[in-house]
């Protein structure tokens, strides 16, 4: 480990970015990030759920059903953030040709798709008692559904090529073109007259009670930690799949092989 680090330091002139662009250098680091994020995800969700259910008061207008927002809003945010992260890594992969960038993007997609489903599902269950309907074709809901289809399309396209490099590039294009949908989701409640309410949390101001907001933000950090941990795990699996023949990986995996 120390020796390979030193070698790659020499090779890349010690610039950390280029060093960690190599799967060999990033593999152990990703493992440490993953472990830290699992712990954070568990601790933060325990605190967030405790605050959300036992400290935050009943909402004066919505009653108890508002407690869905402690997972609805973080899931919706993560669905958008993960898509932007995918677009970022895809762009980096296309421009620099770094294979780790594409793998990073692939590792994020399933978690992003799950976040989109959770935001749609919890939104529907919240909408039924609050709006009187599970679903309406308003701009916010429709663009979020499109986000989910973009995730599915991305994953299907990445998996449909026998030549992995072609799959990388084709799916990176979907990630990039689809990124235009993210600001549309975010601003939809401003641009169109939607049934979905406007943002409760904006930079610098918020229309929520402090304990409610605190619970929601802690749950958001828990969702971040969970998403990073899951993506790092998937990334490492991807590295094992793709770099299986490389000598460094066999060295790194010595303890895992019988």
């Amino acid at each position: 480990m120390a020796r390979t680090e030193q070698q790659s330091n020499e090779k890349y002139g010690g610039r950390w970015f280029w060093r960690y662009a190599s799967p060999a250098a990033f593999f152990p680091l990703a493992g440490r990030i993953e472990a830290l994020c699992w712990v954070l995800a568990i601790v933060l969700s325990a605190i967030g759920l405790y605050l959300g259910f036992f400290v935050a008061p009943t909402d004066a207008q919505q009653g108890e059903v508002y407690r869905v927002i402690f997972i609805h809003v973080p899931a919706a945010w993560m669905a958008m953030v993960i898509y932007l992260a995918m677009a970022f890594w895809s762009l980096l992969g296309l421009v620099l040709g770094t294979r780790l960038s594409f793998m990073m993007s692939h590792a994020l997609a399933p978690t992003g798709a799950i976040m989109a489903v959770i935001s749609l599902w919890t939104g529907a269950l919240w909408g039924r008692p609050t709006w009187g309907t599970y679903w309406v074709w308003d701009a916010r809901l429709t663009s979020t559904l499109i986000l989910f289809f973009l995730y599915v399309g991305y994953m299907a396209l990445a998996a449909s090529f026998d030549d992995k490099k072609k799959g990388d590039r084709a799916s990176a294009l979907i990630a990039l073109v689809g990124a235009i949908n993210v600001p549309i989701i975010y601003f939809s409640v401003k641009w169109w007259n939607t049934l979905h309410q406007g943002s409760s949390v904006r930079p610098g101001s918020s229309s929520m009670a402090t304990t409610m907001l605190t619970a929601m933000l802690i749950m958001t950090f828990a969702f971040w930690a969970y998403s990073i941990a899951a993506a790092m795990h998937r990334l490492r699996t991807g590295v094992i799949e793709r770099e299986g023949k490389a000598a460094w990986l066999r060295d790194a995996m010595k303890g895992w092989l019988r």
Partner: peptide, 26 residues
């Protein structure tokens, strides 16, 4: 949940199922 148990637990239950499914697939 003030008569809204179906909607609240239906949401949290779905999240739990999704997380378990993702962990199993990982």
């Amino acid at each position: 949940m003030g008569g809204r148990g179906f909607f609240v637990w239906g949401s949290y239950g779905a999240l739990l199922i999704a997380v378990i499914a993702e962990l199993v697939s990982l």
